[in-house]
Amino acid sequence: MSSQLLMIEDDARLAHMVSTYLAQSGLQVTHCADGKSGLAHLQNPESGIPAELVILDLMLPDIDGLEMCRRIRSLPGSAAQVPVLMLTAKGDPMDRIVGLEMGADDYLPKPFEPRELLARIRAILRRRTNGGRISSAQVLRFGTLEIDRDAHTVTVAGQLAELTAYQFDLLLALVERAGRVLTRDQIMEAVRGRELEAFDRSIDVHMGRIRAAIETDAKNPRRILTVRGVGYMFAKQQD
C-alpha cells in the first residue's frame, strides 16, 4: 500500500511535477492549492485515508505557511501529529528557525532536487515506523518521564507532552544513548538514518522545545544536558 502525502502548494506546475515524481516511488500525493483546503483535507481526507506527511509551502495565498504549521499542530486528534516538511524559497535561516519553532519537522529550500525531497520524505516515514532503534522495550521510563514507542507519545507525571514527530525521535535518539554525549551531526544521523545537509541551529531549536515539554525548569534542565562545544546528553540519573 502506498503512503499518502498531502502537498499544500499554490504552484500547480511544481505540485504536478512533485506528485508525478513521488508516484514513481509509491508515494500518493494529494494536492491542495491553499491553506484553507489543506486544513480541511487533514481533518476530513477525501479518500478516507489520513495523510502520513504534509509537504507545506511557506508562501501561500491565504494563510502564511508559518501560521499553517501552528494551525496544524492545533488540530484535534491525530491530525495534529502529522509530520510537516516545509518548503521555503527564502534564504534567511531565521525563517527556517521560526518554521521549526512553529512545529515543522524538517525544511527544504527552493529550488530543490526531487531526489533530495524523496530522501527527506523517506527518512521521516522511516522514523514513523520505529525502524532501526536500539532498545526493544515499548515503554521507556525515567522517573516521571514515560516514552511510548508504539503510540509515539511522551508523558510527564501522567500529563501528555506536546512534541512533533521529529522532536519525539530526537528525544528517543538521546534516551536510547543515555549517558553518552552526542554531537549535533550524530543526533541528526540517528534520526534521519542517513547524512543529509542540515542546519545545525535547527537541532538547538528543537531541543529547546523538547526541554519546554519535559523539564520542570527548561532553563535549568535535569534531563537533557548541554555539553558546551560538543552537543547534548540525556542524563541517566534524574528525578
Rank of each mutant, 00 (worst) to 15 (best):
K236A: 12
A33N: 13
I8D: 03
P109D: 07
G38V: 08
D148L: 05
Q24T: 11
A212V: 08
A198H: 10
D11R: 10
S74V: 03
L125T: 01
Q43V: 09
G65N: 04
R133T: 04
L6H: 05
Q24H: 13
P76V: 12
E189C: 06
P221N: 12
L225N: 07
S3D: 09
M59A: 13
E197R: 07
P50C: 01
T20N: 11
A104C: 15
R180P: 00
G131R: 02
V18S: 06
H16T: 14
G193S: 00
E215R: 10
P111D: 04
R96Q: 12
A235H: 13
T153N: 06
L100N: 05
I97T: 10
E46W: 02
D10H: 15
R128D: 03
A23P: 01
Y232S: 05
T30G: 06
F168L: 04
V175I: 14
E116F: 01
L6I: 09
V139T: 15
D200F: 07
E197I: 08
M68L: 12
D11M: 08
G179K: 03
E101T: 11
G26P: 02
C32P: 03
A190T: 00
F234L: 09
R184I: 14
Q186L: 06
D11A: 11
R13L: 14
G193T: 00
A212Q: 09
A218H: 14
A123T: 03
F112K: 05
L117E: 09
G158E: 10
E9W: 11
V181H: 07
E67V: 12
P61E: 08
M86K: 06
I203V: 15
A51S: 14
M86T: 06
I203D: 03
G229S: 10
D217S: 12
L85G: 08
I8S: 10
T153M: 07
Y232L: 06
